[in-house]
């Protein structure tokens, strides 16, 4: 089971630009590497990452096998109001990992 970590400020002022970090534990098998027996290890990567704020998408990333093991993203967005930031990672095998953090606007 992939483990995700996210770093989100607990609070912000309305309209403040905040920095978000997200990391997931994933090998990102590129489909190019071989195992000890010389067989190609099939591709298995996180192919999509997205961040959604109260149901509205903030940003998303389409990943290719050239993104490193344990994919890391840092991005920034303008917080409109108190709400939930939901992160979603999609694995090639269809598994979806989600994380949610609330940002409170004071």
């Amino acid at each position: 089971m992939a483990k995700a970590r996210v770093k989100v400020p607990k609070s912000a002022t309305a309209g403040e630009v905040v920095t978000i970090k997200a990391l997931i534990d994933h090998k990102m098998d590129s489909g190019q590497a071989k195992d000890k027996a010389g067989n190609l290890i099939p591709r298995k990567i996180i192919n999509a990452f997205s961040a959604t704020f109260d149901g509205v998408e903030v940003m998303n990333v389409i990943l290719e096998p050239a993104v490193s093991t344990n994919p890391y993203f840092k991005f920034s967005f303008k917080v409109p109001a108190t709400g939930d930031l939901v992160f979603k990672w999609v694995d090639d095998d269809g598994t979806v990992t989600e994380a949610k953090k609330t940002i409170t606007v004071k």
């Binding site: 630009v17 590129s30 704020f53 509205v56 998408e57 903030v58 940003m59 990333v61 096998p65 050239a66 993104v67 490193s68 994919p71 890391y72 993203f73 840092k74 991005f75 920034s76 967005f77 303008k78 409109p80």
Partner: peptide, 13 residues
């Protein structure tokens, strides 16, 4: 989206 700042950081191969 319009909410996001158009910048990003990641790690690549």
């Amino acid at each position: 989206s319009e909410m996001a700042v158009s910048e990003g950081t990641t790690r690549i191969r």
